[in-house]
């Protein structure tokens, strides 16, 4: 219904003076307050984690009995922490690129194409999210040994890509479904080839979905513990592997320092990217 009405409505609207889009109303105030509360909920644990990372105590404690940089020192002084962090970033970054490229291509096929077995392919693509990680780890390990992929960088990257692709597909498919296919058709009828259509029409429209998928893909790899435990091996140890070490007995407060640094860096990187983008656009 919306599909056929949209262009007509747009045409109608264009001829009339636009009303104020978002008038200040009580419903909007409530919505804003509610959103602020939800954001507060998301951020709340950080208010505990960051002070705790500067704690002088020998185990996690709040409020910190004294201030110290010992956990940051511990992180930077110990090669096992820093190398694990670098390894995780390398793996997650590569996974993000691979999974995003594969996932966007697959989403285009699944949403725009129509071929037999599409439903089954849909099921296959989401199933890595459903199967518990320990089962995936054991199953993949058996295959990996025969393919000589155990303890290799690319072995871990491929395994994590399997786990990350569904996030990209789910997100990108949703945005693809949400936007009007006739914009693509119009571009093509005007002479754009398939790539040009994708690059200049489709891609800008689905970029929020690609962003969401890419972030999830990065996280899916960056946070993944169990498959990494099986495949990475001692020399390719990832950050979650290092964090979960010795968990049976104790929590190493270094992880509070690691979390604080990750929060700071992610905020800095995303925010500076945003500001850079603003500047380059001149607004």
């Amino acid at each position: 219904m919306a599909e056929t009405a949209a262009p007509l409505q747009r045409a109608v609207v264009a001829t009339q003076p636009a009303r104020r889009r978002w008038s200040i109303s009580w419903s909007r105030v409530i919505l804003g307050l509610f959103s602020a509360l939800v954001l507060l909920y998301l951020v709340a644990p950080v208010a505990i984690v960051i002070p705790m990372s500067f704690s002088a105590a020998k185990y996690l404690s709040f409020p910190p009995p004294g201030l110290s940089l010992q956990w940051y020192q511990n992180f930077f002084a110990r090669a096992d922490w820093t190398s694990a962090t670098i390894q995780s970033i390398r793996v997650a970054f590569t996974v993000m690129i691979l999974a995003t490229v594969l996932g966007v291509a697959a989403s285009l096929a699944l949403v725009r194409g129509s071929f037999p077995g599409k439903d089954i392919v849909n099921l296959i693509i989401v199933s890595p999210l459903v199967v518990p990680a320990i089962i995936v780890a054991i199953a993949i390990y058996g295959i990996y040994v025969r393919l000589y992929l155990v303890q290799t960088f690319w072995g871990l990257v491929l395994a994590h890509t399997v786990l990350a692709v569904p996030y990209v597909v789910v997100n990108v498919s949703a945005t693809l479904r949400g936007f009007d296919i006739r914009l693509e058709q119009a571009a093509q009828s005007l002479g754009a080839n398939a790539w040009q259509t994708f690059r200049y029409v489709t891609l800008p429209m689905i970029s929020p979905g690609i962003f969401a998928g890419a972030v999830f893909a990065f996280i899916a790899s960056f946070d993944e513990l169990i498959v990494a435990l099986f495949i990475a091996g001692a020399r390719g140890r990832t950050l979650p592997m290092r964090m979960f070490e010795g968990l049976r007995m104790e929590i190493d407060p270094t992880i509070a320092a690691v979390s604080s640094m990750l929060i700071t860096f992610s905020v800095l990187i995303l925010a500076s990217a945003e500001f850079a983008r603003r500047r380059s656009r001149g607004d």
């Binding site: 964090m243 979960f244 509070a256």
Partner: peptide, 20 residues
């Protein structure tokens, strides 16, 4: 910019988060 806040839970290890 606000979306950066939404992403924050991702960067805290589950262990410290639970402790928090």
């Amino acid at each position: 910019l606000l979306m950066i806040l939404v992403l924050i839970p991702f960067w805290t290890s589950i262990l410290v988060r639970t402790y928090a």
